[in-house]
């Protein structure tokens, strides 16, 4: 199993990520944190829209969709 870090944007639908870092600087990150995008959380990538955006992810028991730019700032280790 690879140990390198990937972003949420890079992994494929059906794969999962164990979050090690999220973005900062914009108020959206606080909202995403409240929704469950925190360090140590596991998120499953589910669906992708046209042109790679939006990206729907299973997190904290719910399904949340974010845009590609934000997904690219969520980094972590890929889990299977």
């Amino acid at each position: 199993m690879e140990k390198e870090e990937k972003t949420l944007g890079e992994i494929l639908p059906g794969e999962s990520l164990n979050i090690s870092a999220v973005g900062t600087g914009s108020p959206v990150w606080r909202r995403l944190g409240e929704l469950g995008f925190t360090k140590g959380a596991t998120v499953d990538k589910l669906y992708v829209g046209f042109g790679g955006s939006p990206i729907a992810v299973r997190v904290s028991g719910a399904v949340i969709a974010v845009r590609r730019e934000d997904a690219n700032k969520i980094k972590g280790r890929q889990t299977f």
Partner: peptide, 9 residues
């Protein structure tokens, strides 16, 4: 444009 976060219930 502002960010977009949507829940799919």
């Amino acid at each position: 444009g502002s960010s977009f976060v949507l829940e799919l219930p």
